[in-house]
């Protein structure tokens, strides 16, 4: 089966200059854990997730801690998030974005999702423009 047959045809995406605050609104309301970043020609240029924002708002040493109990409270996270709320998302997005094309086999999308542990993979056309995404649930639904 081809990716075009299982993908979710949705073009929800953001541009790299929108502020973090706006991105959080979009992720929340569209109920998406991440969103592709596109340029003015709809070319896929990056990817940004809730996880990227949390990482950006946490103190640098957080990932080295064995337990979050070493953090006194959530004030640090809240105050860092407030500091970055108006920053352009470009500062926190990832440019090494994974993608599949509509004519790729479903196996390729499944492989990326499983091996890389991502929740979805953007789908692009032959010119690199965003045309949709394959979500974990798309795979489960179509393989049932």
């Amino acid at each position: 089966m081809k990716v075009r047959e299982i993908m979710t045809k949705d073009l929800t995406a953001v541009e790299k200059d929108i502020p973090v605050r706006e991105l959080i609104f979009i992720l929340d309301n569209a109920e998406m854990p991440n969103v592709p970043v596109v340029d003015e020609e709809s070319m896929l240029i990056g990817f940004i997730s809730e996880k990227d924002l949390i990482r950006a708002a946490l103190p640098g040493y957080f990932e080295m801690l064995h337990s979050a109990s070493f953090i006194p409270d959530m004030n640090q996270l809240a105050s860092k998030l407030a500091q970055i709320a108006d920053d352009p998302i470009e500062e926190y997005m990832r440019s090494d974005v994974l993608s599949v094309t509509m004519d790729d086999d479903d196996l390729r999308a499944a492989d990326l999702i499983i091996r890389k542990g991502v929740k979805n993979v953007p789908v692009v056309d032959d010119q690199g423009r965003l045309v949709g995404r394959v979500r974990r649930i798309d795979l489960l639904r179509h393989f049932l």
């Binding site: 979710t8 045809k9 949705d10 929800t12 609104f25 979009i26 309301n29 569209a30 045309v131 949709g132």
Partner: peptide
């Protein structure tokens, strides 16, 4: 959005 996607329409809405 869900209804349209199920009908094969590509969606591109702004969330408000």
């Amino acid at each position: 959005v869900r209804y349209l996607q199920n009908k094969g329409v590509t969606t591109n809405f702004v969330w408000i």
